Amino acid sequence: MSNTTTDRLMAEGFNQTLLDKPYLCTTKTCPKELQTIRYIPSLGANAFFLALFTILLIFQIGFGFKWRTWSFAGCVFGGLVLEVVGYVGRIQIHNNPFDSDPFLMYLVTLTIAPCFLTAAIYLSLSRIIITYGTSLARFKPRTYTIIFICCDVFSLVLQAVGGAIADTADTKSLTDAGINIMIAGLVFQVVSLTLFAGLCAEFFWSVKKHGGVSRSVLQGRLPKSVGRLYLFIGSLSLATLCIYIRSIFRVAELQGGFDGHLANDEVTFIILESIMVGIASIALTLPHPGMIFGQNWKMAKARAAGEHGKAASSSPDISMERLREGPK
């Protein structure tokens, strides 16, 4: 709530206790200006997404134990836990829109959760490069992972710190500073996703330029099924696109501040935040890498790490001659 609003309410003789402790308010005793957001979040919609992310979380735990894809499952697990906490916060806002604690809970967790999902996407790229052949990539598989995970961490820190500052600030200038830090983190996430998409496109163009990869070659490598591999690549692309759209929306939302139109429009939030992240989470859960790589997920990691070591010399790669065979 802005200082101008506080001064006006005080001038009108509004209860000082409720101004100091707005969480004691109800919709009958306090005006909308004291609410953390200007609408009452839909109980049904937010309960649906809470249930969705909880179910996906259970699947991720089960798949992680079954196929030992600890790094991938850990990243998606972190994102889904934050989504669950965020929607619990939104349900609490439905019950009491004047309490700032659930608002902070929802704001920070839902803002940073997709960073964990993109980390899982970045980890997956190195496995796909190894499957197709490291000679076709601009960088070593581990280089892609390290660069973009670092970008992810930097973006996450900016968003988390900015969110905490913005919500706990007691002056407009400090609130604006926190919002600007959050925007910087989200913009950085959009830029890193754009670069990631460009490097992915370059890699797959290189595969196509060399005549594609024969089905027999792929079947001799890590994936259990070529069709499942293509499904996995498609799901990663869909998840990346959804998170990209969502991040652009959040930048636009925060540009207007907490009192702006987008920040107080639940329909837009549900479509461009909840649904986008929901689709991305489904895409990263149901076509799970364990179904494609099995417990060879760790083997792919070892081969990426041993790129210039002993493991590299003993690990088969796709030769240019075989690449030119084309699909069979």
Rank of each mutant, 00 (worst) to 15 (best):
S2G: 00
N3L: 09
L9I: 06
L9N: 08
E12C: 00
Q16W: 03
D20M: 10
Y23V: 00
C25Y: 02
K28A: 12
T29A: 04
K32L: 10
Q35W: 12
T36G: 09
Y39W: 02
L43F: 13
A45P: 04
A47M: 10
F48Y: 11
F53K: 01
L56H: 01
W67Y: 14
R68T: 11
W70L: 14
A73R: 00
L80C: 07
V85K: 09
G86I: 00
Y87G: 11
P102I: 00
F103R: 07
L107E: 13
L110Y: 01
L110C: 07
T111K: 04
A120R: 11
L125W: 04
L125S: 02
Y132S: 12
G133E: 06
A137T: 09
R138G: 03
D152V: 00
F154P: 06
G163M: 01
D167C: 13
D170W: 03
T171Q: 02
I181V: 12
V187C: 13
T194D: 09
E202P: 01
F204A: 09
S206P: 03
K209G: 15
H210G: 13
S214M: 10
Q219L: 08
Q219V: 00
L229N: 08
L231Q: 07
L231F: 07
C242Q: 04
R250A: 02
V251A: 08
G256R: 02
F258P: 03
F258Q: 02
H261T: 11
L262G: 09
N264P: 08
E266P: 08
V267A: 12
A280R: 09
L284A: 10
H288R: 08
M291A: 12
I292C: 12
G294T: 08
M299N: 07
R303N: 07
G309K: 00
S313T: 14
S313V: 13
S315L: 00
I318V: 15
